[in-house]
Design a protein around this nucleic acid. Structure first.
Lengths: 240, 240
DNA sequence: CTAACTTAGTTTATTTTTCAAACTAAGTAC
DNA sequence: GTACTTAGTTTGAAAAATAAACTAAGTTAG
C-alpha cells in the first residue's frame, strides 16, 4: 500500500538514550546492534519510526520495549534532531528521549530488529550510527545539568540505597569529588529521604538504607511553585 | 505534483514563541492572526511547514521572518509537540522554538499568510489556535527556569541599560520583588557588565548605563566548564 | 576475647555568603 | 537656595556552607 501527499514529508523517528549505573557506580548507556542497513552491524541508540496516531512519548516507550525489553522507567523528551542529511535514507527527523534505569532491576533482552542490546561504559563507547554520538552527548549534558536541581538521580538506584551509594552516583555523574559530611547533611536536611533498616553482611559498620519520598517532593513542589532540590558544592581548598 | 511513500508520514511544522519587553517592563508575546483555515481569524504562534532539505532551526527563523519581519534574534529549540489530534488537518508534529527580542529595536510587519502580527501582554492573551496555549505555557516555564542560571535576559533589553532596567526585567519574569542593594552587588560581582556613560534627561539622579560582555561570559564558560550565572534570591522576612 | 581495621554517622567551630539597614551622591523642580 | 527623587556605597548582622575532630558499630585476625 502507498501513501500520497501534495507536498513532500519527512519521516519521523524516536531515539532513546538510556542511562544506567553499574555495580561499581560507573555510568552506562544501553545500545543496540543494528540488524539492517543503513549501518547494519553498527551500534546505535534504540529507536524507530513513529506510528501514525501514536503520541511521541508512547512511540519512544514502545520502541524501547521492543528492542530491549525495558519498560516502566523514567523517560523525558530531550531534543529534536533534524539536520537534512543526518540519515542516508533521506529526510528523517528524530525526536530524542533520555531515560534513567535501575540497572539491576531491569535486565535486558534483545529483540525484533536489533541483533543484541548491551550496556556500554560511558568511557568505552563504540562509534555510533547516524548522528547518535551527538545525541548522546547532549543527553549527558542534560543529565549533568538536571541532576543539580531535580531529584532524578534516584531513578538510577534501587529502591533502598545508602547515602554512600547516592554520593557515588553524584560523583560519577558530575565527575567531581564531594565532601562526605557536607553531602550527608545537605541531603538529609531536605527531609525527602526516609531511613530504613541497616545494611546486612558488610565487613564494616553497616550503613542505614534510605528511600526517596517522591510523594513528599511532589507535594512540596506544588506548594512552593518549585521546590529546588539543590545539589551544588564549591570545594574549598584541600579536603580530608 | 504528488509525493508517494510506502508508509504514512506526519507533516512537520515549526512554531515560535517570541518574548518581548515593553516600555513598562511588561512581558509580551508576538502572535499572528491566521488568514486561512483551520482557525482562520484566530490568533496563533507564528510558524509553518518545514521545507525538505531545510534544517529545523532555519525553518523556525524563516517562518518568523516571513510572518513578522523579525530576524537576527536569540532563538532556541523548546520542545516537540506530537499529540495525534493536535491539528484538525491530520497528523502534524510541531517543533516549537522560543525567541527573545528587544522590542524597541525590532519593529514588526505582518506578511504572507498572516493577516497581522501583534504584541500581546502576557496577562491579556486571547485564546490561541491548536495547542498553542500549551506551547506558550511551556515556553514561559522554560524562560523562568533558564533566566536563573543563564544570562539570556539581556536579549530582551537594548544594548545599553540601567541596573534598574535589568532588575525590573527579572522581577517581571520571575513575578517576584528583589532587593535592590543585593541585586546590584550580586550582578556586578560577576564582572560581566561594563559601565558606560550616564543616563540623560531624567528628572532625578541619572543612573549609569551598562553593557553585557557576552564574549567574556563565553570565555569563562569554556574555561570553567560552566560559568553559572546565578540569579536566585530567597527573600528573608520583610523588606525596606 | 581483644586489638586492629573499616566504614558510618555526629558535633562543633570557622569561614564565606547573603541580606538589610543606614548613609551618601547627583540630578530636577520650584 | 530647599525639597524631592532615584542612584549607588558601606557596614554589620544573620544564615549557610564547609572542614575538622570525634564517636559508633560492625568484621577480621590472632
Amino acid at each position: 500500500m502507498a501513501y500520497t501527499y501534495e507536498y513532500p514529508r519527512p519521516a519521523v523517528t524516536v531515539d532513546c538514550v538510556v542511562f544506567g549505573l553499574d555495580d561499581s557506580a560507573d555510568l552506562r548507556i544501553l545500545l543496540i546492534e543494528r540488524a539492517d542497513d543503513p549501518f547494519a552491524g553498527h551500534w546505535a541508540l534504540p529507536g524507530g519510526f513513529v506510528d501514525m496516531g501514536e503520541d511521541l512519548d508512547l512511540a519512544a516507550k514502545r520502541e524501547l520495549e521492543e528492542e530491549t525489553g525495558i519498560k516502566d522507567i523514567f523517560i523525558e523528551q530531550l531534543y529534536t534532531f533534524g539536520a537534512p542529511n543526518r540519515d542516508p535514507r533521506g529526510r528523517v527527523i528524530s525526536v530524542a528521549y533520555y531515560a534513567l534505569v535501575n540497572l539491576s532491576e531491569h535486565p535486558i533482552k534483545a529483540a525484533s530488529d536489533a541483533r543484541q542490546a548491551k550496556w556500554f561504559k560511558i568511557s568505552e563507547l563504540p562509534p555510533l550510527a547516524f548522528d547518535h554520538n551527538k545525541v548522546l552527548e547532549m543527553a549527558l549534558e542534560r543529565l549533568r545539568a538536571k541532576v543539580l536541581y531535580k531529584p532524578i538521580g534516584f531513578e538510577l538506584l534501587p529502591e533502598k540505597f545508602t547515602l554512600t551509594d547516592l554520593q557515588n552516583l553524584y560523583e560519577t555523574i558530575l565527575g567531581q569529588q564531594l565532601n562526605r559530611r557536607n553531602f550527608r547533611s545537605k541531603i538529609l536536611k531536605m527531609g525527602l529521604l526516609e531511613q530504613q533498616e541497616r545494611q546486612q553482611n558488610v565487613p564494616h559498620r553497616p550503613a542505614y538504607l534510605y528511600k526517596f519520598n517522591k510523594e513528599k517532593y511532589q507535594r512540596l513542589s506544588e506548594r512552593l511553585g518549585e521546590f529546588i532540590f539543590e545539589i551544588r558544592f564549591q570545594p574549598r581548598e584541600t579536603e580530608d
